[in-house]
């Protein structure tokens, strides 16, 4: 089945909570410097965190990782992490916006907020990835991506440090791919190259 053939993608969004640092190291560590899409990440971090996670990941990964700035235009080959205590949203002109609106699913930044706003902008050209985590943030966002024709990838709950985020998404929707973390870089490569 060539469900993705001929489909072009414009961006990837990733949501992760408990176990996020390890998971992001593995996933982003497997991507090349010249990865052809921008990647936006919401990882649940405590409100007083600085940009330490972005700095750490940037030294560990070949792909460029940074904390997102307000109004910044997202570029291929770059990973943007949501800063602590702000929701990260995407504008139609592919620039980054922040909000200090109330936490959603007890989280700020919230995965749902990013995913829903990115789905509005990119529709079927968006890839959503939901990884390990407690709680259920990201499920509604994944559903919206799916409903807009985007591609959704869920970490196999068996493979996840905390399985409740992936599990709750899988209860709500049928994922295009349910895979182990270590296989996601190759899967992404194949999807963007149109090999799947």
């Amino acid at each position: 089945m060539q469900r993705n053939s001929g489909k072009t993608f414009k961006a990837i969004v990733i949501g992760v909570s408990t176990g996020g640092v390890t998971a992001l190291k593995k996933l982003l560590g497997g991507l090349p410097t010249d990865f052809p899409l921008p990647i936006l990440v919401v990882s649940h971090i405590s409100p007083d965190s600085d940009d330490g996670l972005a700095v750490l990941l940037d030294t560990l990964c070949s792909i460029h990782v940074k904390e997102a700035n307000e109004g910044e235009l997202i570029m291929p080959g770059t990973v943007y992490l949501a800063p602590a205590n702000y929701h990260l949203l995407l504008e139609r002109d592919s620039t980054i916006a922040f909000s200090i609106d109330s936490p959603v699913n007890f989280a700020r930044p919230s995965v749902d907020v990013l995913f829903e706003s990115a789905a509005d902008v990119y529709n079927k050209t968006l890839i959503g990835i939901l990884l390990t985590g407690a709680g259920n943030d990201g499920s509604k966002g994944m559903l919206k991506i799916k409903n807009r024709g985007g591609t959704v990838i869920v970490q196999d709950p068996v493979d996840a440090e905390m399985d409740s985020m992936p599990k709750s998404a899988l209860q709500l929707l049928k994922a295009d791919y349910v895979v182990c973390l270590k296989n996601i870089p190759e899967l992404l490569h194949n999807i963007v190259e149109g090999k799947l």
């Binding site: 949203l89 504008e91 139609r92 916006a97 909000s99 609106d101 907020v113 902008v121």
Partner: peptide, 9 residues
């Protein structure tokens, strides 16, 4: 006003 947040609200 920026659209992403406005649309959400």
């Amino acid at each position: 006003y920026s659209e992403a947040s406005l649309r959400r609200r």
